[in-house]
């Protein structure tokens, strides 16, 4: 499996683009994260299907919760990472921050997409509709649009400094806006109380434990993918720059 590691000879000439790793070092961090993810996933599956008791109100489909919630949280965490990386780039002007930003943006978009799909399926089981305009789902949808906008902007503007700066600004605005959007949709909804996706009330400890294990698993997977995507960004930048130098 083509895991990313630091290994090209020409990197020595382009010191910002990679440390002097001219030998092919084994990708320890990646392999460790992948292994831990696998263990975590097995544990989570066991806990979700065999350990946690069936929810009294919603029944079996409620178990979607144990995947849906961590995925949604990671999707939002990823956006925070994009913003922090963007601010880092604006401050330090080091493109490595931007690689992290682009990586997390792509990952976040994937996670939010999955969160929307699982949330929709969950809503279908609890309320019979594939979609409801409750604050959480709606804000997740808006966040999805912001992610797509970010990816489109970066794609159109290419691998330039302007592109990185604009992306950072978009992320900052987006991060500040998301809580405001959530609240305004909440206010809007109090006038039209409708179906809401979620598990109300306090949660018993077995539920919390399972949720936490699942969350840790997905965080590990996110971290693993972040490393791969970061290296991908690095190599793509390197390739583009090298190609430009000979043409």
């Amino acid at each position: 499996m083509a895991l990313a590691n630091r290994d090209t000879q020409t990197e020595r000439q382009y010191s910002t683009i990679g440390t002097a790793g001219q030998n092919t070092r084994p990708p320890i961090a990646s392999l460790a994260l992948l292994t831990l993810t696998f263990i975590g996933m097995m544990t989570s599956i066991f806990m979700i299907f065999l350990y946690v008791p069936t929810d009294a109100i919603e029944g079996i489909p409620q178990r979607i919760f144990y995947f849906h919630v961590p995925i949604a949280w990671i999707g939002m965490l990823a956006f925070g990472v994009v913003t922090v990386a963007g601010i880092g780039y604006l401050w330090k002007k080091d493109e490595r921050w931007d690689w992290a930003a682009r990586a997390s943006a792509e990952l976040g978009a994937v996670f939010i997409t999955l969160a929307l799909i699982t949330g929709s399926i969950w809503g279908k089981t609890t309320w019979g509709t594939w979609w409801t305009w409750d604050a959480r789902l709606t804000t997740t949808l808006i966040l999805w649009f912001i992610y797509i906008g970010y990816l489109m902007l970066r794609s159109y503007m290419g691998r330039t400094h302007e592109s990185a700066r604009s992306g950072a600004v978009l992320a900052i605005i987006g991060l500040i806006d998301v809580p405001i959007i959530y609240e305004s949709v909440n206010w809007w909804r109090t006038l039209h109380p409708q179906a809401e996706v979620g598990t109300p009330g306090a949660l018993p400890p077995s539920v919390v434990l399972t949720l936490m294990i699942s969350l840790v698993t997905f965080t590990l997977f996110y971290s693993f993918l972040m490393i791969q995507l970061y290296q991908l960004q690095r190599m793509q930048t390197l390739a583009q720059r090298l190609r430009a130098s000979v043409e």
Partner: peptide, 25 residues
Amino acid sequence: YLVAAYAVVWLGLFAYLAFVVLRIR
């Protein structure tokens, strides 16, 4: 429904992982 949701996540993440690996290669 439960199976569908989990299947979507698993397939989705696997497909994405494959996509990433292909791009790195």
